[in-house]
């Protein structure tokens, strides 16, 4: 009995990643199938439409790069099962697929000369998927200089895009970790020095396709 490949593909697309990693050893054809971008997309589509099982969602993350116990790992972005994790003390970021345990260290940003000696520390990160180019992108906003850099997984490189600017003179803070939704990364923009109470001004979003910022108006505004 030999099951046709399209039926095998459907069966495999229903399996968890752990099983797929194992079944890569079944044959060369199955190995190539599981590794193909088409299959990966099929698998992501199925599992994002069927997230009714939370029993695998909470598990100890065995990550490969960092072993320093004094630096708890923060997740600075996640999308389609990939995590973006920082190595703050070296100003580095890496991407990790916790299911396959594969990871990739992102290259350093080459800052231009004007800010070269002023090494920026406080940055906001966001990580998401650009469907228009089928690419994963990491965004880094350097809060002191308002410089914005975009990393593309496809090219494995950073580029500088238009600075993050706003019209207000008050200090702006971004909160919310660049949540990925609707093809954009979203932050809550908080004005922190005009009022003792935090006032949510608006949601600032970064469009991953056009690589620019836009404001998402809030329906309710509290004073």
């Amino acid at each position: 009995m030999s099951i046709p490949l399209d039926v095998i593909t459907e069966i495999l697309s229903l399996l968890p990643v752990n099983s797929l990693m194992r079944f890569g050893c079944v044959s060369k054809q199955i190995c190539a199938l599981i590794d193909s971008p088409e299959f990966i997309k099929l698998h992501i589509r199925f599992f994002s439409a069927n997230m009714d099982s939370l029993d695998i969602a909470v598990q100890l993350l065995d990550h490969p790069l960092d072993s320093c116990p004094k630096n708890p790992i923060k997740v600075i972005g996640s999308c389609n099962g990939l995590l973006a994790l920082p190595r703050y003390w070296r100003n580095k970021v890496y991407l990790l697929n916790p299911s396959t345990k594969k990871h990739q260290l992102l290259p350093n940003i080459v800052f231009d000369s004007e800010s070269h000696y002023n090494i920026p520390v406080i940055s906001q990160f966001g990580f998401g998927y650009d469907a228009s180019t089928d690419d994963y992108k990491m965004v880094r906003i350097v809060m002191s200089t308002k410089q914005v850099f975009v990393y593309s997984l496809e090219t494995n490189s950073w580029k500088r895009v238009q600075d993050f600017s706003h019209h207000s003179s008050s200090t702006i803070r971004l909160r919310g970790g660049g949540a990925f939704a609707g093809g954009a990364l979203n932050w809550v923009e908080v004005k922190s020095d005009c009022c003792p109470l935090l006032i949510i001004a608006l949601i600032t979003a970064f469009d991953l396709k056009h690589e620019n910022f836009f404001a998402v108006p809030l329906l309710l505004r509290k004073n």
């Binding site: 009995m1 030999s2 099951i3 095998i8 069966i11 050893c25 079944v26 044959s27 060369k28 054809q29 199955i30």
Partner: peptide, 10 residues
């Protein structure tokens, strides 16, 4: 392999 009728070619 047995279930799906696939020959191991590794």
């Amino acid at each position: 392999r047995e279930f799906l009728g696939i020959q191991n070619d590794f």
